[in-house]
Structures are given as C-alpha cells and as structure tokens.
Write a protein that binds this DNA or RNA. Structure first.
Lengths: 225, 225, 225, 225
DNA sequence: TATGAATGAGCATTCATTCAT
DNA sequence: CATGAATGAATGCTCATTCAT
C-alpha cells in the first residue's frame, strides 16, 4: 500500500545513495501532502513544492512520474497514515469499556495531530470528482477498508449483547453511522477551527450518539432501514 | 447577502440593455458555481467559465472585478440558495409530525436537486483556508445563520415537550448534531455517489438519530456536554 | 494650432450643450497631458485617463478619434502653452537689459509652474521615435518655430552691437545654444528634482553662458562653426 | 554595478551549459536595451523582446525575475557601458591639449556608436518618475558617479592654471555645465537626428562653450553662483 | 542523481475600441 | 451627448514538463 502508484526510477544503486534518495522522496511527499491538504491539487504547484521542500523541480520529476503520480503517492501515504492511526487506536482499546468509545486515540490523532491526511483525502475527492483518474477510486477503497475494519471490531464487541446475525447487522449500521459522524465532525472542525465546538466536545458528542444508536439497535428499534 | 446576486435598478437607465447584462451575469454565475463545485477554485479557469457560458473573458471581467470577486458572488449566491431551500422546507413543515423530520424537502433539495451550492461552500472552505480573503468568513457566516434558524425552529417544536430554558438548551444541542449529520451525510454521499447508501436511507438515518437524541435530551440524558 | 489634430464630432448642437462638451474635452486633455508627461504614451491607458478625469471611456472616444488622436491634441495643447509662455516672457522683456536674460519668466513658468508641457513633448519625442505617425514631426515643428522666434528676438537685441549680416549669424548661433541649454537644464532638473541644483541656479548658469557666448561671438571668436 | 551584467562562475557546475545560458541572457539584454531605448519601458513588451531575440518568453523569465528586473539589468548594463565609454575617452586624453576637449572619443561613442545606452537612461528616468522602484535612483547614481569622475579629471587638468582650492570649485562648475551641455546636445540630436546640426558641430559647440567657461572662471568672472 | 536551462501551452487580466440605447 | 455592455487581441507571467550535462 505504501509502495505508491508510480515510481519511474527505483534503480537499486549503491545503497547510501538510495537512502538519501528515499529521504528526499519522503520530504517531497510530506510537503506535497501539506500543501495539497490546504490548497487542493490544482492549487498546489510543483514549484511551490520545490520551494517548500528545497528539492528542485527536475528532481521531483525523477522521483515521481508527474504531478498526477505525485498525487497518487500522497494519497497512498495518507491512507497508510489513516490505518496506522486506526491500529494505534486499536492497541489502546482494551482499556475502553464501551464500543462507542473505541478510537478515542485515533480520533484525536486524526483531528489534531495529523489532520492533513484526512483533509487531503476529503479535499481531493471533492475537487477531483470529474477529473478522470484513479484518485476517487483510491479514496473510496480507503474508506471501504476502514469501514470493514470498523465492522469487524464492532462485531467482536457486540458478541455478548446479541446473536451473531443480528450483531453483524447492528455492527454495519453502527459503522455507517460512525463514518457519517466522523466526516461531519471533521468537516465542521475544519471550518470553524474549534471556535464553535472544541474537539473534545465533538468527540463526546460522537460517543454519546454512538451509545444511543447501539442501545436502540440492540433493543430492536432500528429506524428506517 | 442576497445583494450582489440580483441588481434591480441601480440607476434609471435604459432598461432592456441592463436587463440583458444582468442575465449574462447570472449565466456566468451559474456556470462558475457548477465548475467551482466540481473542480474547486484553483481548478476553475476563467477561460473554462467563458467556454461553458459563451461569455468572453473580458466580459466576465466587466461583471466581476476579479476571479476572487467572482468567487465572492458565487458564495453569496450559494448562501442565498441555501436559505431559500431552508425556507422552502419550512413551508412544508406543517405536515411533519416530529421535529427531527423537519427539512425533508430541504434535505432532498440540497442533496439531489442543487448539490452544487453545498458542494461549493464545502470545497471552497477546505481549499482556501490559508488563501487570505473573506471566503472562509463568508462560509462561517452562512453556517452560523443556518444554525440559528435551526435552533429557532427546533425551539418552537419543543415548546410543548419541556420548559423553555431547557428547551433552548436541547434545541442548541440538536442543531449542532444536525449540522454534523448533514455535513457527514453530504460528504459521504458526494464520495460514494449513492453506491453504499441511497439518499433516502441517509435521510432516514439522520431522522432516526435526531429522534433518539431528542428523546434522550428531553429525558435528561445529555451525554458529555 | 489649438484647434487640434482630430475631432470627429464637432456638431454645432444647442450651445449650452456645446460649452459643457468643450469643458469635458478640456478636462480630458489636461489629465491626459499630466499622465502622459509622467508615464509616457504607452504607459498611459484610456481607462486611467477615464478614472482620473471622471469621463467614461466611450465619451473620451466621442471627443477624440482614438488614442493617437488624443496624443495629437495633447501635443498641440503643449505647443500652445509653450508659445503662450514665450509670449508672456516677451511682455516682461522690456525691463530686461541684456539679451541673455530674456525669458526669465518663461524659464520659470516652464520649469516650475507647468513643466508637464515640456515634459510631454520631450518624453513623447524620445519614446515614439519609430512609432510611425506625426508626433515626432509635430514636436520638431514646435521646436523649429520656437527657435525662429528666438532668432528674431535676439536679432533685434543685437541690432546695435554689430552689422545686420553678422547679427543674424550670431543670433542663430545663440539660439542654438539656448536650445541646448534649456533642454539640458530641463532634463537635469527633471532627473534630480532640484536636489543637485536649484532652478534659480540653473537659470543663472544659463544666463551666464549666454552672456559669455554673445560677447565671444560679437568679438568674432566663433568657435568651430 | 557591473555585477548583474556578467555572471562569471557562481557555482562550479558543468560549464558549457552555463556559458550558453549567459549568452542568451546577454542577447536578451541587448535586445531589451534597444527596444526600451526606442519605445520606453511600457512600450516594450516581453513578446516583442522574445520575437526580436529568438528567446521564448518563459526563458526570459528564467533569466530575469520580472519585466522590472529586466529593466534593472538593462540600466546596470547601460551604466557600465557609460563608464566604459568614459574610460575609453580617458585613454585618448593624453593627446588632447585643453580640458574642454576631453571626452571627444566618449562623446562620439555615446552619440553615434551606442546612443541606446544614454537614450534608455534618459527615457526611463523621464517615463518612470512616479512608478515606484529603484530605477530613478539608479539613474541618479550613475549621473552622480559620472559627475564625480568629471570633476576629478578636470581638477587634474586645471592644476597648473590656478590654486587647488579655486581649482576644485572651478572643476565643479565646469562639470555641472558639461552635464547640461551633454544632456541638451543629446536630446537635441535625438529629436532632430542631425538634421539641424550634425554631431561634429554639436561637439564643437560644446568644446567652445567649455573653453569660454573655463577662461571666465579662472579669470574670476563666475557668473551668478 | 542533481542541476541549469529550455519549452509551449495556458493563466488571470487589461487593452483600445465599438455599439446600442 | 452619456452610459452599460461587449469584443478580440494582447499583456505579463506561471504552468507542468523535458533535456543535456
């Protein structure tokens, strides 16, 4: 997953050279992610990336086939970071008591420590809807995989509360809801920058709703679906 | 807010001529909204707008000072449309029974009939966060005003269910939640284009959650806030 | 001479109307002279003239056939002002005692009160050397006529000092010198804005040299020509 | 001052490649000087420079930051050429007998061989008076330095004719006069293109006046200052 | 691999000018 | 006469990209 979309010249070369090359590549990727997360794809120029990273344009083109390829790599990297955050959250899960509290660590990571990964995914998928290419597909894949993981986790948690079949259904509905809540909270947070609602409160709101929904679903009040 | 969209009669003048100008202005504005909603600000070129609208670039600059100024007009127009949708929804409200069902018409309008207004607001506020200028402020203002309206409406609806003071508090929390749900649903819908969840289902999900939250808040189970 | 080069629509019209039109024309001409004297012809745009004069571009085109025609009018006006200054200086001449002191009033007028007339002539003739058209010819004509006038005046003054034939020759050489001195002093003054040499000193320098040259020429030491 | 004109070896680098770049830069600079000297800054377009030099606009922008930056380089280059001419004239000075004859070679060089350097300095300083930026300052600096050089040279020449203190004063007055005469002669020559007065005659006139002024100043008849 | 230089298409914007009212 | 609107060519400049060293 992290071995990106396009990579024209990954010659083995001498070793130390290669390491330096990888470092340059990483620096470019970081800067590109930052810029694209703030200005979008079209608003981010190669020369801006060059200036901010100190890597000459021609060198950027040595590491990535073209701007589109660089975008692919940025997306892959964001996806990786996303799942890394999910994994990190999973490690702390043991201590959490209710399923709706899962991912507190992940939530904070995504919202506060490295929001550029989520931002870039969101922004790119809004901005490049009709620009042919695989970007939108990539984002969809990330989201689908994230959702699956969520469903699994929720299913395990619900194992004791209801029978397996019902459990799976409940897990799926909760996962969908979680996605909506995360998306909505993130967007709101990006727009108001915490002015109308601090991150912690957003998290609390989300947990609260997840709790209500879980209870309602287990009790059988499923709403419209 | 609706000032820049329609220019009734700034000067006595000839009439027919001015009218044609206003029509051109409106056509440009519509095309610009469409394009910016799909490609973002940076990705939308004046010449693309020109081609799609049939209005020459130089004429576009007669109607709008800048690309930036055009963006401002686009945002104002989107805001107007937004509140128009809200008003339209309010007219149908009488027949709805529960407060969480309010805005079904508005929801459908925004999600299906004219999603570009919401899209452009969302996209622009993500894309142009650090590009100085008033765009982000405009979007914030629209959202704040929308939220206030929601609070008012909800408060009226809750009048019978609890005492006024508590009612206001409940209305505010429900409004915040509604914003999160609308944002999240919209983003999800934009990304999956209805593949993983049809619009109706998204609306049902939202109503269901709003209902749960209302019940819980009235009962006093307020979650973390 | 003041009834300019091009004038597309001088319809007789109603009288009061015509007077207002003449005022507008004059305002445009004044602003155009100012701007062209500072930014040159190419650097002065119709819309800049419009903004500075409050006359709409379309109206400017009603008074002048095109930008080139406006330039012609500007030059004519500057020439008029130039000769007006010369005439004004001639009136005060009686009190002056030596021929080299003639034009003190004119000198001050041109250098301090209305330098834009000289400036525009100078600038345009440098700037538009190879832009076909009559501008350069106009400037040459002004200068030639000014020189003739100078020669006449000087000849009268020298009448008592030497025989007519010699007198004419001396007057011509003095006139040439005067032109060089005025040009050079003006250019220097425009560049240093009086910092290295105040206007009065420049005038004194010029008078001093004119005196030396007259004495030398009358005495028969004619230099190389 | 000569810094921006020639770029010897800022970095070790490949050599042949850089040399070609420097040549292109020089070609652009030459063409830009020519055009700006004839049409002024505003009248000289980048695409005109491109067409006349065979260098693509984008390449011009590789060598110069701006049109303004290009102008700066043009001015520096003109200043260099100016002092080069002065130096060339100084070499031939030994054979000249009187101080007023100094610079005959320089005079001819500036008036006939490479008048564009003087023209561009003159034209730009008239045209861009209120266009903020350092252009006017640059021209002032060039003129000041030129004047200092003149004063030095004249002082040496006058060493035998009068005491040092008086000599310095005389030299300063003669230098001021020389500047006026050169400016005026050049402007006149540019306007009439030698029609009313051939270059040689202008030079003779200037020498004659310088001789008269020197004699008068040494004799103590200093005019008004 | 990194660098200086080039390239051609495209960008936002302004130009001089015209026309109908 | 003045005004709002249009027009097409040009402007200064940046873009993504390539190439030779």
């Amino acid at each position: 997953m992290s071995s990106s979309t396009t990579q024209p010249n990954p010659k083995p070369s001498s070793g130390a050279r290669r390491e330096r090359g990888a470092k340059v590549r990483e620096r470019v990727l970081k800067v590109a992610t930052d810029l694209m997360a703030r200005r979008g794809y079209a608003g981010t120029t190669i020369s801006a990336i060059s200036k901010a990273s100190g890597v000459l344009p021609a060198s950027i083109y040595w590491h990535f086939e073209n701007k589109e390829g660089l975008l692919g790599a940025v997306i892959d990297r964001a996806a990786d970071a996303w799942f890394e955050a999910a994994a990190r959250a999973a490690d702390q899960e043991e201590t959490d008591s209710t399923p709706e509290q899962l991912n507190h660590a992940g939530f904070r990571y995504v919202f506060e420590e490295a929001p550029e990964f989520f931002r870039v995914l969101l922004l790119i998928s809004l901005e490049r809807r009709d620009a042919g290419g695989s970007t939108l597909e990539s984002v969809k894949r990330v989201r689908a995989r994230f959702r699956e993981r969520l469903v699994d986790r929720l299913e395990q948690r619900l194992a004791g509360s209801c029978d397996p079949e019902h459990g799976h259904h409940v897990a799926e509905r909760l996962a969908s809801l979680a996605l909506v809540l995360v998306d909505g909270s993130f967007v709101g947070h990006q727009i108001d920058a915490g002015e109308t609602m601090p991150v912690e409160e957003r998290y609390a709101q989300m947990s609260w709703i997840m709790g209500l929904a879980r209870a309602a679903l287990i009790a059988g009040e499923g709403g419209a679906a």
